[in-house]
Design a protein around this nucleic acid. Sequence first.
DNA 1: TGAAATGTTGGGGCG
DNA 2: ACGCCCCAACATTTC
Length: 442
Amino acid sequence: MFFFPLSQIFNQNQVTICWLRRDLRLSDNMALHHATQRHDNVLVLFIFDTEILDKLATPSDERVSFIFDQLDLLKIQLEKFGSSLLVGYGKPLDIWHEIDKYLNVKNVYFNSDFEPYALERDKSITNFLSQKKIPFQTYTDHLIFHPSQVKSPENKPYTVYTHFMKKWKSNFLKEKDIVDYQINAHNFVKVNPFPNISISDIHFTHTQIQFPVLKIETNYLQKYQEERDFPALNATSFAGLHLRFGTISIRRLIAATIDINETYINELIWREFFTTILYHFPHVVTQSFRPKYDMIKWRNNEKEFESWCNGATGYPLVDAGMRELNTTGHMHNRVRMVVASFLCKHLLIDWRWGEAHFAQKLLDFELASNNGNWQWAAGTGCDAAPYFRIFNPQTQMEKFDKNGEYVKKWIPELNTFDYPKPIVEHNFARNRCLMVYKTAVG
DNA sequence: TGAAATGTTGGGGCG
DNA sequence: ACGCCCCAACATTTC
């Protein structure tokens, strides 16, 4: 549905539709660039996909609020060009049926999304468009390279990060100019502004959340590799968050960082690596990348899981991280590794439980990276940390939060009797983990 | 993007 | 001067 009758708004003029999904910006957007360079009467569309929304745990999900706010912004920008933003709500295929019924669609443009659900959804939409003889164009805008573009000489996808990274870089040097895909603002369809919809129309409530601003200034980037491991320092760029919703393009981010910081670029390549892995090995969504790791006998103690979720394990760095996550929807990257290791190794809880909790809480949640990093931490993934690499949560705190600045910020009761004793003794848990993993995978 | 256990080396104290 | 012990610091191996 569209919250207002489409038939009243458009005449019989042909429109070219540019469908935004996880690329919520007008600048440097490949699909929008090509649509507005080649056609006039370009109409920008967004669909609140009920297949996705219905799975969210809470009606006050901040990520929906963020999308909603971002759409408001896009609408205002488009209205400056004499156009507006069309927002649908429902199952995407139903919406496209509705569009086809009321609009004279000449062309459809959108950027590819490589997650399994999105691939399936887009297949059903493009089948429909083909049936209706409506031409469509898709682009790789979310990544620098399409998942089938970074392959080994035997034309196989890499499953080890280092090899992927080297090939990615050599491809990049050979093939890529970092283009800025600008729009032709004259070619948006001219319409009166569509009526505003409110977030309650899509059965959500608005959360006033301060979304962290993207940080990519030169002097920040220069210090990135020295500071990034220390959670008390303000050294997170929040690029993951903005890349996830497409409020910055990966090309602009690469352009801003390529000459400044190798370590930072490598992090961006990890993102392309895990997206590529998910594309070629979609079984990772439900299973370990390496099947024998599904033999591990997880303890899956629900009380302990709850303590982990709530930040009550008695290990300050773990608890601080979980509380940061629960409070802000964000967790420092170093701490993510520590809490993930703790859940899988110390508590022997299935990595999928942790993955699901992160998926629910992280504002920057993205299936590919979340899954890839959890499998890395659990030791079950491609190019995973070997299972016997077990983080010591105490040592990690001594190394990366020496003065206790970060843990004290999140655990005010830290040095009082209210703070719990460790849920499990480190040496005991470590040895238990080694035994359980060894039994499963040898 | 780990940590613990084990091995090696070298200096100082001391008989 | 010498051998021996102790221990810290560093290196290597193992989980």
